[in-house]
């Protein structure tokens, strides 16, 4: 451990990794809690995999990867959200319902990205980093982008906290009170897409779903309010990211997979019946 701490003081890339873990944890705590409470996990999975289309576009045209991925994922997510909103509840689980549309966009975005990357002449880049994350290679520019997003996230939460809270607990009632439920829902979906793109840098698009759902799922077992759930989920996310980073450092395994392994272990421990009884 001392070796890791000494290296963190010396190496810029490790400092960047620690900053990335901290900043991603803020997004994970806030957005992850809303995703879990709104049962948007499938939609978040669709957003993360569709983001691969943005990566493909960025590589093919030589555009900035973060911005391109962010815009593509945002567009795909809003489309999924729009379909969800316009699918009657009685059709939601049936053929042609929102689930099917999300599944189609999920696969289509990924396929689009793969095709574009394969068509890119002479591209030999490292794709594993996008699929499984590479927190140790996050550049300083991305750290600033993540910080900016966190600020935006907190500001949006402060402005819309009651609206987002209302649609999370009871959409029907919120709509009956005249709250702009559709706007708030699409806002939440948009925030989810942005958070997904941020977290892709840490754990990759394959594993992003786990980091977005495991910490809030653990937090929800012990918290009685949405806001405390956000704080605890954020702290859990930071803890898991740091533990995974240390594990990857000493065992030379993929940092994204190590972070998810730690998170899954913690989820298993939190699900133990003895802990369940204590919190009831």
């Amino acid at each position: 451990m001392a070796d890791f701490l000494a290296s963190a003081g010396s190496y810029l890339f490790l400092q960047n990794a620690l900053w990335a873990a901290l900043l991603a944890s803020v997004a994970c705590g806030i957005v992850g809690s809303l995703v879990v409470c709104n049962r948007l996990t499938f939609l978040a999975g669709g957003a993360s995999h569709a983001a691969y289309g943005g990566i493909g576009l960025a590589i093919y045209f030589g555009w900035p990867p973060l911005l391109c991925t962010l815009l593509f994922s945002l567009g795909a997510s809003l489309l999924m959200g729009f379909v969800s909103l316009h699918t009657p509840a009685r059709l939601a689980g049936k053929e042609g319902g929102a689930d099917a549309a999300i599944g189609v966009l999920w696969a289509a975005g990924m396929a689009f990205g793969i095709i574009l990357i394969e068509l890119t002449p002479g591209y030999t880049g490292e794709l594993m980093g996008y699929l499984f994350g590479s927190i140790l290679t996050v550049p300083r520019a991305d750290i600033w982008a993540m910080a900016l997003f966190d600020v935006l996230l907190v500001v949006v939460l402060l402005f819309f906290r009651q609206g987002l809270w209302a649609i999370s607990i009871d959409k029907d009632f919120a709509q009956a009170r005249g709250l702009p439920v559709r706007f708030l829902y699409l806002l939440l979906v948009g925030l989810t897409a942005l958070a997904v793109v941020m977290l892709i840098r840490i754990v990759g698009l394959i594993l992003v779903l786990a980091l977005l759902t495991i910490p809030p799922a653990i937090a929800r077992r012990f918290c009685r309010s949405l806001y405390s759930c956000m704080v605890v989920a954020g702290l859990c996310s930071l803890l898991f990211s740091l533990a995974g980073l240390v594990l990857a450092w000493y065992t030379n395994i993929s940092s994204g997979a190590a972070i998810i392994a730690v998170s899954t272990l913690a989820y298993g421990l939190a699900s133990l019946p003895s802990l369940q009884r204590k919190t009831e």
């Binding site: 409470c37 402005f159 819309f160 009651q162 609206g163 987002l164 809270w165 209302a166 999370s168 607990i169 009871d170 009632f173 919120a174 009170r177 005249g178 709250l179 702009p180 706007f183 708030l184 929800r220 918290c223 009685r224 309010s225 949405l226 405390s228 759930c229």
Partner: peptide, 21 residues
């Protein structure tokens, strides 16, 4: 949903507004 009964009841006073109510 992680909320108390009092929080849920308070929501009943919601008023629509451009910022989401």
């Amino acid at each position: 949903f992680p909320a108390t009964v009092l929080e849920m009841v308070l929501m009943g006073g919601a008023q629509a507004s451009p910022l989401g109510g």
